[in-house]
């Protein structure tokens, strides 16, 4: 897949403290425009914190984050970024369609978009149901649908496929690929390694630091492993040997 030269997201020397602890330690990385970049790392490694910094809702200690050439969190960016929080952030006391109608009104998307995104996440038959009566995976998809409204140029998704079955996961990854090929940039966090292979680029995070940033094939080659899970473990071992 062709990836543009200018990165859509550029993070440089980003340091973040949360609750007095160092959570991101001088992180620098780039997300190529038009790429589907996977953000991987163990639980607590700082994936959500990095994502929040990119969206501009995280207080940062130092460093810079640029999205589409503007400072993260700046006003013009808010209409251009779709954001899915790790926990589904929708109103449980509204129906699927009522939720999406409201978010569409806030971002100024056309009401016709609402049905499009509902069908993109496969919830057409549930569009009149209260979110409180949906399963966990269905709620996750409502939250994802809200981020798809208005065809954002950059989509930042924090574990959008958690709790979903293999068929749905495959469908959503096809959706992500389709969005990327029509020009959007996607940053998707996950800790499911077999999803990593579906990405064009990978960012491996560990303990608030970037362990590797490359394409899946390059990471496998470089570590001389057959699958990404082994590659990731090899990278961690190598780092621990280096630290000794």
């Amino acid at each position: 897949m062709p990836v543009n030269e200018t990165p859509a997201i550029e993070v440089s020397e980003l340091t973040v403290h949360r609750g007095g602890n160092l959570v991101l330690d001088r992180v620098s990385c780039q997300v190529g425009a038009g790429s589907v970049t996977g953000l991987l790392g163990p639980s607590g490694s700082g994936k959500s914190t990095l994502i929040r910094s990119i969206v501009g809702v995280q207080k940062i200690t130092s460093g810079t984050v640029q999205v589409l050439g503007r400072a993260a969190g700046s006003k013009p960016l808010r209409a251009l970024i779709g954001y899915v929080t790790q926990a589904p952030s929708v109103y449980t006391d509204l129906t699927v369609r009522e939720n999406l109608r409201y978010f569409a009104a806030v971002i100024g998307a056309s009401p016709r978009d609402v049905d499009t995104v509902i069908s993109s996440v496969g919830l057409t038959d549930k569009s009149g149901a209260l979110v409180a009566r949906l399963s966990g995976g269905q709620r996750t998809r409502v939250s994802l649908a809200a981020a798809l409204l208005g065809e954002p140029q950059v989509l930042v998704l924090d574990e959008p496929t958690v709790g979903l079955d293999p068929v749905l996961r495959r469908d959503l990854w096809q959706l992500f690929k389709g969005l990327a090929s029509s020009g959007s940039t996607l940053l998707v966090s996950s800790h499911i390694m077999d999803e990593a292979d579906r990405c064009t680029q990978l960012l491996l995070l560990r303990d608030g630091r970037v362990l590797a940033a490359d394409s899946p094939a390059a990471i496998r080659d470089h570590t001389d492993t057959a699958d990404l899970e082994s590659a990731f473990l090899a990278l961690i071992d190598a780092e621990e040997v280096a630290a000794r």
Binding site: G56, R78, A79, Y83, T85, S89, V90, Y91, F103, V106
Partner: peptide
């Protein structure tokens, strides 16, 4: 519920 964080990340 995180809806406030979502809204504040939107042009609102």
């Amino acid at each position: 519920s995180g809806t406030l964080e979502r809204l504040l990340a939107m042009p609102l």
